[in-house]
Measured scan of single mutants.
Amino acid sequence: GSVVKEKKEKALIEVRPYVEYYNELKALVSKISSSVNDLEEAIVVLREEEKKASEPFKTDIRILLDFLES
């Protein structure tokens, strides 16, 4: 629970300088966080969101995924 939350919060802070739609990304992460149990599940849902998103938000999600998977 809290470790996953920390990882996601740290990821958002780390990617902030590189993303165009930070507030939207943060809102998406919050929405996903409330419906998943762990980081792996969150990553799966983020990948689905990435497929549906259009640029440049798609790239923002990709940047976040790269950080979460590192």
Rank of each mutant, 00 (worst) to 15 (best):
S2G: 11
S2K: 07
V3A: 12
V3E: 13
V3N: 13
V3L: 10
V4S: 10
V4Q: 09
V4I: 12
V4K: 05
V4H: 09
K5S: 13
K5D: 14
E6M: 01
E6P: 03
E6K: 06
E6A: 11
E6S: 11
E6R: 05
K7Y: 13
K7G: 07
K7P: 08
K8N: 15
K8W: 15
K8Q: 15
K8I: 15
K8P: 14
E9A: 05
E9W: 05
E9R: 05
E9P: 03
E9T: 06
K10D: 07
K10L: 13
A11G: 04
A11D: 04
L12W: 03
L12M: 05
L12A: 01
L12Y: 02
L12G: 02
I13F: 02
I13V: 08
I13K: 13
E14V: 08
E14A: 14
E14I: 05
E14L: 03
V15H: 01
R16D: 14
P17C: 15
P17A: 10
P17D: 15
P17G: 14
Y18K: 15
E20V: 14
Y21G: 05
Y21C: 15
Y21A: 10
Y22Q: 01
Y22K: 00
Y22P: 02
Y22M: 03
Y22H: 02
N23L: 14
N23I: 13
N23P: 04
N23G: 06
E24P: 00
E24M: 05
L25E: 00
L25D: 00
L25H: 00
L25P: 00
K26S: 14
K26N: 11
K26I: 15
K26E: 15
L28M: 06
L28N: 01
L28V: 03
L28E: 00
V29G: 01
V29Q: 01
V29E: 01
S30F: 08
S30W: 06
S30D: 15
S30Q: 13
K31W: 07
K31C: 05
K31M: 09
K31F: 09
I32P: 02
I32E: 03
I32R: 02
I32T: 04
I32G: 03
S33E: 10
S33V: 14
S34I: 09
S34Q: 14
S34R: 06
S35M: 13
S35W: 13
S35N: 11
S35Q: 13
S35F: 13
S35P: 04
S35T: 12
V36M: 05
V36P: 03
V36H: 05
V36A: 08
V36Y: 05
V36F: 05
V36C: 05
N37R: 08
N37G: 08
N37V: 08
N37M: 08
N37K: 08
N37E: 08
N37A: 12
D38L: 11
D38W: 15
D38R: 07
D38M: 06
D38G: 09
D38Y: 09
D38T: 14
E40W: 09
E41L: 07
E41W: 04
E41R: 05
E41M: 09
A42E: 08
I43A: 04
I43M: 13
I43Y: 06
I43G: 02
V44S: 12
V44L: 12
V44T: 10
V44F: 07
V45H: 11
V45N: 10
R47W: 14
R47F: 05
R47G: 07
E48G: 09
E48L: 09
E48T: 07
E49P: 00
E49G: 02
E50F: 10
E50V: 08
E50D: 02
E50P: 00
K51C: 11
K51L: 11
K51S: 11
K51F: 10
K51G: 10
K52D: 06
K52W: 07
A53R: 04
A53E: 07
A53V: 06
S54I: 08
S54A: 10
S54V: 09
S54C: 12
S54G: 07
E55F: 10
E55A: 05
E55N: 06
E55Q: 08
P56C: 04
P56R: 09
P56W: 06
P56L: 04
F57M: 03
K58A: 13
K58L: 03
T59F: 05
T59W: 06
D60P: 04
D60G: 06
D60Q: 02
D60F: 14
D60L: 14
I61G: 00
I61V: 04
I61H: 00
R62S: 08
R62K: 12
I63C: 04
L64D: 00
L64A: 02
L64Y: 14
L64C: 02
L65G: 04
L65C: 11
L65T: 14
D66R: 08
D66A: 11
F67D: 02
F67E: 06
F67I: 06
F67C: 04
L68P: 00
L68G: 00
E69W: 07
E69C: 09
E69R: 10
S70D: 11
S70W: 06
S70G: 13
S70H: 12
S70R: 09
S70A: 11
